[in-house]
Design a protein around this nucleic acid. Structure first.
Lengths: 169, 169
DNA sequence: AACAAACATTTGTACATACAAATAATTTTT
DNA sequence: AAAAATTATTTGTATGTACAAATGTTTGTT
């Protein structure tokens, strides 16, 4: 099954930096159906991207989710953002914005205040320290994104986008 | 950033079943660079696949990881598998096979015995109940995998695989 | 045989997801 | 104005990941 194989693949991520076809990585005993193989390939590719992104954030002591919240806050250009807005921007399913923001508070990356107009609401603002951290990360994150695309031409990238959009219905 | 946007997209998964381009989903204020867009598209597509797979498993009270372990055990055709083999097949990084197997034990889907030849080792075997659960899931999981591919021709699928392999280096 | 090293698994901790329930403030209804 | 409904956030619980340390067993060395 693909989940099973996906994780098997993890083994190889650190070892192999060269381009490999999915069969070379998972070495199935029987030839895999193209349908299954494609699904696997999407899963695996996302995995590689996430792995690298985690490595980028690790030295900055940020989780991808914390980074995510900081980016949302910066996007508001200094205006405070309340919890439910952050939540909406992150996921439909109620993840735990409260606890994420707690962690950011401990690191002095954000400020949390009660909204004077509506005391149910909280106003979260990114601090100068938070902004500095993000600007430190900006070039690294941009480089990360561009690295993946560099092996494909513009028209190949466009084609890949089209195929992915068709694939997921 | 893509993580930020990826989760935003979640909002739309339940609402939209029709084919959409990535820009229509995330509605960026400025046109997104094709490099960033492609990365996003991979992340989002994996997300859609995982979501659907979770939904499939939920009525069976199985997590993807638990399903994964059961599949590994079935693959051994009745032979017991020890913890480190399961661990290897799942991930390089030491995830928590012990606690995953604990959960499966509670549901009587597996048996855990001390290996008589080497008392450090544990022998994990899938039970009849576990096998029955998997065979119930088989057609649903297969259908799930094939659904995604059905909008693409064989040559498009092959092309998608090639592009993904190039993309991740 | 005793000690160290290696191996297999378990346990602990911090953090994240997913979901449900609780709490508190505000708005709507009667 | 009081009760009900809605809204915003927090808290709780179960589960999973990621990583480090602890435990128990076997193997290798002297």
């Amino acid at each position: 099954m693909y989940i099973q194989i996906i994780f098997l693949l993890h083994l190889y991520i650190q070892i192999l930096q060269t381009q490999m076809r999915i069969e070379e990585i998972i070495k199935p005993t029987y030839p895999m159906a193209i349908e299954k193989k494609t699904l696997l390939n999407v899963m695996y590719t996302q995995n590689v991207i996430s792995e690298k992104f985690n490595e980028i954030l690790k030295p900055f002591d940020l989780s991808p989710e914390q980074f995510n919240v900081l980016r949302i806050l910066r996007g508001q250009k200094g205006n405070p953002v309340n919890m439910c807005t952050i939540q909406e921007r992150m996921i439909a399913k109620t993840s735990n914005t409260t606890r994420l923001v707690d962690k950011l508070l401990l690191k002095d990356l954000v400020i949390r205040e009660i909204c004077p107009e509506n005391r149910r609401k909280m106003e979260i603002t990114i601090t100068e320290k938070g902004l500095q951290l993000l600007s430190q990360l900006d070039p690294i994150v941009n480089e990360h994104e561009e690295t993946f695309a560099k092996n494909l031409s513009i028209s190949e990238l466009e084609l890949l986008n089209e195929l992915l959009e068709k694939f997921r219905n």
